[in-house]
Design a protein around this nucleic acid. Structure first.
Lengths: 328, 328
DNA sequence: CTGAAAGCGCTAACAT
DNA sequence: ATGTTAGCGCTTTCAG
């Protein structure tokens, strides 16, 4: 089929080792022989067989990325940034969608670990012990999730959330609803955080809306509960839900931000792509993906090193969906 | 490190060949020895090394998927369906984002071809001769694009588009705008098609809006040109653009469908996730992805077989964004 | 049904 | 700076 190093070696009058070296350690071969080899390689349309190389080296050069749901814009943007970073590091990327089932996700991760040098888990909906077990078995980095003793790149929400509540308080809102998610590790800390922020700014927090799956439809459903809650502002756990809340309120003939203010968390393109554009707690998804890759590469290079956490800052981005609270 | 077939063979008192067979050709080994081997394998936590297997077999078991833009919901849904189908076929999936540069995309495809058994190109923005050259070099299937003499799974737009125009005509619209895209192979045929449909239903077609890049922002920009066009309805080339058009019209204080009717093409979740929900020419993205994988697998199995086209039907889905034309 | 032997194409000491 | 020599772990004739 395709030419091998042996072919090139013969044609160029050198040994296979030299051919190998001109591709992997170019500096170690004299310039003129290198040129000769490359010329022959070009003529024969040769390029090294990655599989053979992987076998001999004992590593594949590929990374694996697992996400719960590819079509979700949040994960879509993560996949995008991971893919980019992986490429600049000259690593190929395996992608797998895990869905929500823990055991299945675990199995998929295990399987993928066998054909990659390391695993990136984005927002895994998996118990911590499974995550730890995976991390113990091979290089693993987490994206968008904070698990102690594990390499992870995540968004530090407190600052952004506090800004969000302060923003609403400053606009005169005294009672706000938080539409929360379910099954995400973020939820617990996130709720505690919201309480603290609301206490600080003397805002009442209505929290019974949820937990929901983080879907558009659930956001719409949540919107139906908002008017009777006595609240004048809503904070939604992510953009899909916020989108749904906005849609639901619009359907009821409510105006945003006239009747209700709305703040979203994540800030994918969706937050800008609706009318009114959503005020958002911006999560640096891009940076999370890139740092995740870097953490993983570092872990691969040094399996024994201490675990590293990269906490990325969040901040409020004010757009059109927040305004003064309506007069009581 | 991890156990090898030789280890298992020794422990089980058989040869490495037998271990190999119990994993790849289980029927060819007697039930009791198979059980014995599997028991040892389980005990040693052994599973076959994919890389070694790939090298020996001469194929990797992996497929490669190239998309221009992962974060675009259209491609996100394609990635999702391809990934699913690949998994049921027990194939791992490499993912690469190509961006818009032809040459780079070509290079990435070439590189990926070396580490996979075949390539899936989704909506490639690449000249036909490059595509053909890739297809000549190894198994390739196209998704969402019709290129003669090549395996491809694509949506047959005529039926859906004709229904869209007829729908608008029936609602009394006499002049419609088509916001078209650029750099997609779909564009040329699509425009011809629109003309034909409009002629058939005696509707005037205003086509000077574009070509645009298919982004939300360009949709918003396009919306600014709509009111002066004299048209009462808009058909947008994809959901992102339609989304932008809707946002732009809303910002101008125009009502949809009160002042303008709007139809989108593709029908990703975005089409349902805005208010009003968009009437759409539904493109069966899921089926396209699945068929793409099937075509590729067939091609891999039989490199010499005749090229196959899979044309999936489209149809109009009426939602809330279309209504009677306003009185003149 | 099972085993022995010869690779798959490349890499990495070790020698020269 | 280059060549020699063993593999990496699995698959696959070919014998038995």
């Amino acid at each position: 089929m395709s030419a091998t190093m042996a072919d090139v070696a013969r044609e160029a009058g050198v040994s296979a080792s030299t051919v190998s070296r001109t591709f992997s350690l170019p500096e170690t071969v004299r310039a003129d022989t290198r040129e000769r080899v490359l010329a022959v390689a070009r003529r024969l349309d040769f390029s090294p067989n990655r599989t053979a190389s992987s076998l001999a080296r004992g590593r594949t050069g590929a990374l694996g990325l697992l996400v719960p749901d590819i079509a979700n814009p949040y994960f879509g943007e993560i996949v995008k940034s991971v893919q980019r970073r992986a490429r600049t590091a000259d690593r190929a990327l395996f992608l797998t969608e895990t869905g929500d089932a823990h055991d299945e996700a675990y199995g998929l991760a295990k399987a993928m670990a066998r054909q990659t040098d390391g695993l990136l888990l984005a927002g895994p909906r998996m118990p911590e012990d499974m995550l730890r077990s995976l991390a113990a078995a091979g290089p693993v980095a987490l994206i968008g999730l904070h698990v102690p003793q594990t390499d992870c790149a995540y968004a530090e929400l407190p600052v952004g959330m506090r800004q969000a509540v302060r923003h609403l308080a400053a606009l005169g809102h005294r009672r706000i609803v938080y539409v929360n998610g379910t099954r995400t590790a973020r939820t617990a800390g996130f709720r505690r955080l919201m309480r603290a922020a609301c206490d600080e700014f003397r805002v009442e927090l209505v929290e019974h809306l949820g937990p929901f799956d983080l879907t558009y439809d659930n956001g719409r459903a949540a919107a139906d509960l908002v008017p009777t809650s006595g609240a004048t502002a809503v904070i939604a756990h992510n953009d899909m839900v916020a989108h749904g809340v906005a849609g639901g309120l619009a359907r009821q003939g409510r105006s945003v931000p006239g009747d209700f203010s709305l703040i979203t968390v994540d800030d994918t393109y969706l937050a800008r792509a609706i009318h009114p554009a959503l005020t958002a707690v911006h999560v640096p998804i891009d940076a999370m993906g890139a740092h995740g890759v870097d953490l993983l590469l570092a872990r691969i290079a040094d399996p024994q090193g201490p675990p590293r956490l990269v906490a990325l800052p969040t901040a409020l981005t004010v757009r059109e969906s927040t305004g003064r609270a309506p007069a009581p």
